[in-house]
Amino acid sequence: MNLSVQFGTLMMMLLSGIGMGIAFDSYRVVSNRLHIGRLLIPILDLLYWLAATIIVFRVLMANNDGEVRIYIFIGLLIGIGFYFWLFSSTVIAFVVWLIETIRKLIRFLVRCFELLVIKPMLILYKLVRVLLGFALAISLFILKLTGQLLRPFWLLLAWMIRPAVRPLWRAIEPYWKKIDIAGRFIRIRTSCIALWKRWFGED
């Protein structure tokens, strides 16, 4: 292995040490901010060191075919020490700022979704309820008024056809009682009133 390859490998190990320091500080800040349980910390530490080892080995394979020399560990230690001496506090501050920015962005997006989607849908729902209630009330009023206006004509018609209907009624009365139309009508009316109160009553 010539000197240029050794120097290049040393520089890559130095950069790998800096990268390991950045990854460690980022992982530590994120785990603290997310309040990861203590039981998971050893597992995450193991995963961190496993990933770091694999990455360093791949860098070695790319630079000197995986040969392990003493200067490799020296380069890693220099890179890690250099990072914690100069850049650690800056990286921690940046990661904290990035996490808070992401949180604020998520809260902003959720708020926009509530204002632009959820609240208009609720307002539309309430408006439809009011319009349906108003239309139903107007319809019932018109039906009631029409019934009152037509009541004299119905009474006159009933008086005129009573002699012809009475024999027919005597013939179908037993079947009418079995069907119980009046009882069914009362039950349907009660169900409609209960449904009206549930939909259009006070919340």
Rank of each mutant, 00 (worst) to 15 (best):
L3W: 11
S4P: 00
S4T: 04
S4Y: 02
F7G: 08
L10Y: 14
M11R: 12
M11N: 12
M11S: 13
L14S: 03
L14T: 12
L15S: 08
S16E: 04
G17Q: 06
G17T: 05
I18K: 03
G19W: 04
F24Y: 14
D25F: 03
Y27A: 13
R28F: 07
S31K: 12
R33C: 05
L34W: 00
L34G: 00
H35M: 06
I36R: 02
G37Q: 01
L39C: 09
I41Q: 12
I43M: 05
L44E: 08
L44H: 04
L46I: 14
L46Y: 13
L47G: 10
Y48A: 07
Y48V: 08
L50Q: 11
L50A: 10
L50G: 15
A51K: 12
I55R: 12
V56M: 05
V56G: 04
V56Q: 04
F57R: 12
R58F: 14
V59A: 09
A62V: 11
N63R: 07
N64M: 01
G66E: 06
G66M: 02
E67M: 00
E67I: 00
E67L: 02
Y71I: 03
L76S: 08
L76N: 08
L77W: 11
G79T: 01
G79V: 02
F82L: 12
W85Q: 06
F87N: 10
F87A: 13
S88G: 10
T90I: 08
F94S: 08
V95I: 06
V95C: 05
L98M: 05
I99K: 04
E100R: 06
T101V: 01
L109C: 09
L109V: 09
V110W: 07
R111I: 01
R111M: 06
C112Q: 11
L115I: 06
L116R: 13
L122Q: 13
L122S: 09
I123Q: 13
Y125E: 09
Y125P: 01
Y125K: 04
K126P: 06
L127P: 03
L127N: 14
V130W: 09
L131R: 07
L132Y: 00
G133N: 04
F134N: 10
A137W: 08
I138A: 14
I138D: 10
L140T: 03
L140V: 02
L140N: 03
L140H: 01
K144D: 10
Q148D: 14
Q148I: 05
R151L: 15
R151N: 15
P152E: 13
P152N: 07
W154H: 15
I161F: 15
I161A: 14
R162S: 15
R162E: 15
P167L: 02
P174W: 03
Y175P: 08
W176N: 12
K177F: 10
D180M: 00
D180L: 00
A182M: 05
G183F: 00
R184T: 02
R184Y: 03
R187H: 09
R189T: 07
T190K: 14
S191D: 13
S191R: 09
A194D: 08
L195T: 01
L195F: 00
L195N: 01
L195V: 00
W199R: 01
F200T: 00
D203I: 03
D203E: 09
